[in-house]
Design a protein around this nucleic acid. Structure first.
Lengths: 222, 222
DNA sequence: CGTTGCGTTGAATAAGGTCAAATAGAGTGG
DNA sequence: CCACTCTATTTGACCTTATTCAACGCAACG
């Protein structure tokens, strides 16, 4: 079941089965959707990895987020009825499209689904504000520690290892997301490795000292 | 009428009148709501000025936004049903409380109201991502230019002068919002003044060259 | 007046960006 | 299997920018 159904009770789930989900596959580099595309569906990531990207006023692009299996994509389109980001597969991936029209009619019958939506959207708000706001007050080491711990937590929540994982994105994409140059990202990985907090082998990251990493974040501005 | 009713047609507005709005006054420094307060209402700012503040992990606080008359406060609470920010009056202010329960029942009868909500929440998402994301790639001058232009646009939209206005917040609060130190904010105001783009007299700001200010933002990372 | 909060300015410092070069892998074709 | 190429990554040297620390100015208010 690929719907984010954690907010639903059993009979509601059966109702939800009325929705026709369609899967689709994407190759690495393909767009799931583009800015301005009309918004029809939410997408549950079944496998693979995605980045969301937005163009900046100055013509450059900024990565706004990464999405892994089990997570929902496309919430940015709900209000404006057009997508606000470009969403691109970082590797060959598969998603499950959830038609929003049907979902919305369902929501009229199922108040808890309505609430569930508000929750998801609201989490988006908080995530955006929360994560992004913090960035400003954090130095490079803190940003990277936060990034890794966030990934780790999400991997764990989806049943993957929390201490060892492959980054699917380049240093440049990480830098764009964290507002750092790729050189600083690289240097900071090395620094965290020197401190024996992580082990870096190309894209493979091993977290050696989780508490230590959390300490990096905690000691900010103290 | 203090409801954000721009999305409603006439009969819907009449329906909306069934909602009981209650006004309340706040003194400078008083909390409109605090983090963790149960979420009951949205608030339309009638007059005055507010800041939203969130505590950071390290114990310090960060200003996440400013709100002026005509704007809606409290959207952060919808999903979690508890407020996610502290909201504090920057001067003696008056708000209009819109009970959310009633609003939600209304939304069941009025699909356009439902959509309107999605829109407002979604705008919150976009605003958060949009503004905050940009910060990372902007230097102090660009940040301040953006801040002033944003304020100017919002003042204009509410019927105030777009070229001359009083800042209700301190340099420190601006700095917190933009992730700069208060000294850098001050220096940068001076710099913009030296460039004849603005005129600063304590809290009174006059925008002398709007195009120039926009140019400051535009030339980022060119 | 003296105090207090807020704002401005200067000098020294630290952090990250920029530019440049070296290295390492992954994939390709011979 | 090897050379070749392309891209990603790492590292170094230098420079720009914002922060830090400190001093001073100013206005409001008791």
């Amino acid at each position: 079941m690929c719907l984010p159904c954690c907010g639903l009770s059993r009979p509601e789930r059966e109702l939800a089965n009325r929705l026709a989900f369609s899967r689709s596959r994407l190759r690495r580099g393909e767009h799931l959707y583009r800015i301005g595309d009309s918004f029809n569906s939410l997408y549950a990531v079944r496998n693979g990895f995605f980045k969301s990207v937005t163009p900046l006023d100055n013509g450059r692009e900024q990565v706004t987020g990464f999405s892994m299996p089990g997570e929902v994509l496309g919430l940015d389109g709900i209000g404006p009825e057009r997508h606000a980001f470009n969403c691109i597969a970082l590797e060959d991936s598969e998603v499950c499209a959830i038609p929003f029209g049907g979902l919305q009619s369902l929501a009229f019958e199922i108040p808890s689904l309505q609430r569930h939506f508000y929750k998801m959207m609201s989490r988006e708000i908080t995530r955006g504000h929360g994560v992004m706001l913090q960035l400003g007050s954090m130095n490079a080491e803190e940003r990277l520690a936060m990034f890794l711990l966030n990934l780790s937590r999400r991997f764990a929540a989806r049943g993957y290892s929390e201490s060892e994982f492959n980054l699917r994105m380049t240093r440049e994409e990480i830098g764009s997301y964290l507002s750092l140059t790729l050189e600083t990202v690289s240097r900071t990985f090395s620094k965290l490795q020197d401190e024996r907090l992580i082990c870096v082998q190309q894209k493979l990251i091993r977290i050696l000292n989780k508490a230590g990493l959390e300490g990096v974040m905690g000691r900010q501005g103290n």
